[in-house]
Structures are given as C-alpha cells and as structure tokens.
C-alpha cells in the first residue's frame, strides 16, 4: 500500500525559517484531528480553541526546537496536551513556553501495540478497567503526560494519580495473564 508523501518535516523546516504560509499549511493539516482529540480530554470548545492557538504559536516561536526525528503529528500532540494542562492550571492567559523543553518521545511501545489492537485482548482488558483507572492510564501512558501533568489535567492529587496508575497497570497485567494465550496476532 502506498503511503502519501508526508512532507510535514519539510513544512516544519519552512516554519522554522519564518515562513508564515508554511505555518498555515501546518494549521490546516493538523487542527482538525488535534481538536477532536483535545475535546476528548477536555470537553470545552472554547478552552480547546485557546489551546490550539497556543500550540501553533508555540510552534511558530519554537519550530527550531523540533529534533527532526519521529512524527511531526506526535510532536504537535505532545505540545498541545501540555498546553491544555497549563491552561487548566491557571485559567488566565499563559505565556507560551519554548517548545524545546518539550519531550518528543511519544511513539512509544504502547502506541505500537495499540495500533494493532482494537478489539483484541488488550482492548478488552482496557475496557474492563474502572473509569477512574482508565482515565489515569490514558493520560499517563497514551497521552505521554508526567504524573504531575496528569494530576493537573484530571484535577487529582499527584499521589492519587500514582496509586491509580500502578493499580491500572497491575489490573491490566493480571487480566492479560489470566486470558488464555490467544495471541495469534503474530509476532
């Protein structure tokens, strides 16, 4: 199957060189899915639109902070979800931080597993978790947030996030071990 030429990296280089039209291209390409995913995390369109604005402004001012490896989309998400967390901390207008401080490791092993699993064992195990454990797991593992950031996003004490995350991992591990090894999905 042919994948479309993904020239996001080239666009980002142009943005780093100060090309405003390139930023426009980036906004047009990535606003829709980022907006949907952010709204899943925080169902307030006004806040989410502020976050999107913050995100692309941060990209404009710190596009050179992109290390050039990995998916541009994953990098954008890591900025956006942290901008969301920081919006929620102080509801007034935050100052954009340099994007060079952001962690770009996001295409983790968990993502690769999830990419191949929809209704498989892991999916079932994930759904069997209580909503409290699942949201914590989602924030820490899937969204790549630190414990502290996840605590802010979910309005929970840091200690609670820590304990729920470890309980969620434990529950996932137990239910996956308990299942008969039907993983015919192939290695």
């Amino acid at each position: 199957m042919r994948t479309e030429p993904d020239d996001d990296a080239a666009v980002l280089h142009a943005v780093a060189a100060g090309d405003e039209r390139a930023l426009g291209v980036l906004v047009a390409r990535h606003t829709p899915w980022l907006r949907v995913r952010l709204l899943r995390r925080y169902a307030d369109a006004e806040v989410v639109d502020d976050v999107l604005q913050d995100t692309f402004v941060a990209v404009w001012r710190g596009a050179s902070g992109w290390r050039g490896d990995g998916e541009v989309a994953a990098w954008l998400w890591s900025i956006a979800v942290r901008r969301l967390v920081s919006r929620l901390r102080h509801h007034k207008a935050p100052t954009p931080v340099g994007t060079e401080q952001l962690d770009t490791r996001l295409a983790s092993a968990e993502d690769l597993v999830l990419q191949s699993v929809t209704h498989g064992d892991l999916g079932a195990a994930l759904l069997a978790l209580s909503p409290e454990l699942r949201t914590v797991l989602q924030a820490t593992v899937l969204d790549g947030l630190s414990t502290r950031e996840a605590a802010r996003l979910l309005h929970l004490p840091v200690g609670t996030v820590k304990s729920r995350a470890s309980r969620a991992r434990e529950a996932l591990r137990r239910s996956l071990v308990a299942l008969p090894t039907t993983d015919a999905r192939g290695a």
Partner: peptide
C-alpha cells in the same frame, strides 16, 4: 486509543 495512535502516523 487505537484510532488516536493510528492518526499520529497516518496523513
């Protein structure tokens, strides 16, 4: 979660 992971890598 699966869709979101896929979207990151699929223009």
């Amino acid at each position: 979660a699966s869709v979101e992971a896929h979207l990151l890598g699929c223009p």
